[in-house]
Amino acid sequence: MDRRRYLQAVGVGGTLALAGCTGESGEGDSAEFDGTGTLTLATATTAYDSGLLDAVVPEFEASFGASVRTLPRGTGGSLETARNGDCDLVVVHARPLEDRFLRSGHGLNRRGLMVNDFLLVGPPDDPAGVAGSDPRAAFRAIADAEAAFVSRGDRSGTHIREQRIWAAAGVDPGGDWYRETGQGMGDTLAVAEGLGAYTLTDRGTFLTVREGSLTAHVDRGIDDPPPLLRNEYAVIPTNPARHDVADALAMAFVGHLTGRARSTIAEFRVDGERAFRPLGAREAPNFGQYVPSDWER
């Protein structure tokens, strides 16, 4: 699959003011941008390959007079880029890795952004007989049949979730039937198609790529997926106390994603199908999203 070009378009000039970080106008402190700022975003490849960023980034550039440089690195690679101080914020989807990032002090003010789900896809003849199964049972069936399975093997959010499902299934995958690509989701889907193998994928990339005859055999839907298939994305700014970053611009982008862009995310379609569901505002604040999930007072 050809990757989309990095998004480096320069936005409109002029001076714009941002009130707060909610994506809406109102009272509060303001930061001004003069149309020359550049924001560097490291992102999970699933958010990039699906085309979602093509929809939400130009809106931000036009509104705030700044350009966005996008680095698709996968979740593990994106967090490492932020640890090195080489990006201003990240969009990621692996809470265990996010927790370590927050706990180490390299990121702060995590915001839940959107949800979709993971799918187990494979050849249409379904040699392991997994169609309609619980994800744990499906993974056990693949291992028992030693049916070909392709893993990203890259410490991405999808790879971390795949490992979690294997563990829940009580399986330590290995042998000739289990292969790792070390590549992004689009490329891994292409390898799975070529080998007639199963793989775990996010919905957004699968809808975008739809490699050959690969079929979704375990698909519980985007509205209320079970915990093992629920795929939550977050946006996390890099800590300006640790790194020299464009903090005001990063927080403006956070406000855009969790404010005005929520409607864009909700309306985003791939071949007429929803690829993501934005996380909505809550009556009671969810303070747990800002700190590691296993933090104790």
Rank of each mutant, 00 (worst) to 15 (best):
T81G: 02
T81L: 10
T81N: 02
A82C: 00
A82T: 00
R83M: 04
G85I: 03
G85Q: 00
D86Y: 05
C87N: 03
D88Q: 05
L89T: 07
L89P: 04
L89M: 06
V92K: 03
V92M: 03
H93V: 01
H93L: 03
A94W: 06
R95S: 08
R95N: 04
R95T: 09
P96W: 07
L97S: 13
E98I: 14
E98L: 14
F101M: 07
F101S: 11
F101A: 12
L102S: 12
L102V: 14
L102Q: 12
R103G: 12
R103A: 15
R103V: 13
S104G: 11
G105R: 13
G105K: 12
H106Q: 11
G107S: 01
L108Y: 15
N109V: 14
N109P: 08
N109E: 15
R110D: 08
R110H: 09
R110Q: 11
G112R: 13
G112E: 11
L113N: 08
V115I: 10
V115N: 11
V115R: 15
F118R: 11
L119A: 09
L119Y: 00
L119K: 01
L120R: 07
V121T: 01
G122E: 03
P123Y: 13
P124T: 02
D125K: 03
D126E: 12
P127R: 10
A128Q: 07
A128D: 00
G129R: 05
V130G: 04
V130S: 01
V130T: 05
V130W: 11
V130D: 01
A131Q: 12
A131P: 07
G132Y: 10
G132V: 10
S133Y: 06
S133I: 01
D134S: 02
D134N: 06
F139S: 00
R140S: 11
R140L: 06
R140A: 14
A141R: 15
A141L: 09
A141Q: 08
I142H: 05
I142M: 07
A143G: 03
A143W: 08
D144N: 09
A145V: 04
A145C: 04
E146D: 11
E146F: 01
A147H: 05
A148Q: 14
F149N: 06
V150E: 05
S151L: 09
S151Q: 12
R152K: 08
R152F: 03
R152H: 13
R152S: 04
R152T: 10
G153C: 09
G153Q: 06
G153I: 03
